[in-house]
Amino acid sequence: MIKSLKASGNKLAMIKNQLKVLAGEPFQTELPTFVEKLKPLGQFPLKPNKLEIFQINLGYMCNQVCKHCHVDAGPDRNEIMTKQHLERCIEILRVNKIPTVDLTGGAPEMNPLFRWFVEELTKIGVEEIIVRSNLTIIRANKKYYDLPEFFKKHNVHVVSSLPYYQAGKTDAQRGDGVFAKSIKALQELNAVGYGIEGSNLKLDLVYNPNGAYLPSDQAELEAEFKKNLKKDFDIYFHNLFAITNIPISRFLDYLVASDNYEEYMEKLVMAFNPAAVEGVMCKNTISVDWDGYMYDCDFNQMLDMKVADKSTQHIDDFDLEKLEVRTISINQHCYGCTAGAGSSCQGTVA
């Protein structure tokens, strides 16, 4: 198993080095910066709409080490959200009535307080609880085998990564044997009612390209995935979210190491879609890190770009009014969310 950038001492584990790459070529001479693209649209400074999704990163620990992971997650990461912070999140959600909670990681299920937290969220009546499950965690250890039943009991909306409907590309991106375990986990989720047509147990899959190219039409990809997963494994799911790989962390390392960085950034800029700007997820989402700090999105979290208003950067100082009028922090990686049909944790946006 490969190591995280952090554990392997990779220079891109230091955020300042990632920002240095994003500030360099091709944006010094050939390509416009993201700010320059937004200005003529009247979208700079970028401002949020109503807060609808509270995305909480329960920790960077993961049983997988995916090559493209923007979190640089893995078994060697030990950052994990404490009960104190989880309780504060519950309080924020209870008081502010934010409709959707989106739990991510790492593998969020590896936080020892994960089940307690989901139970508490259910008690306060959160409208929608999303868990971003990597699927293999369900088969990683006996203590996780009952997760499908647990998800069902709490009507959790399961969103899972599956970059391809065959083993080769999936394992190349997510590790040897991941595809087989993912298929088994999907079958178990189907068995308790997840992903079945007409079922209110929502199971969505996330597709992201297996290299330095952009995703194509989401509906076309969804049709291919549905056809092949049904034919080969009798697996069903609801929606496929096509997500663009954002040029940060391990994917940035891959782009630089494979000499694809400048060409990839050019593709993102050439595919810039003004219509996607209005739908970017930072407009309705706040991302919380394991240590309680808040960001405009998960990607800004990984670049340590906290929300700009210094008086409400931590959940202990959460102020909805201020957050809903903040200025969203942007950089060149934001081109990833505005290319083509746009990209967000909920798939395309335009």
């Binding site: 065959q166 952009l214 076309e220 990809l221």
Partner: peptide
Amino acid sequence: TEDALTRGVSE
């Protein structure tokens, strides 16, 4: 080739 990759066409 790139178009096929983006469309999820297998090798």
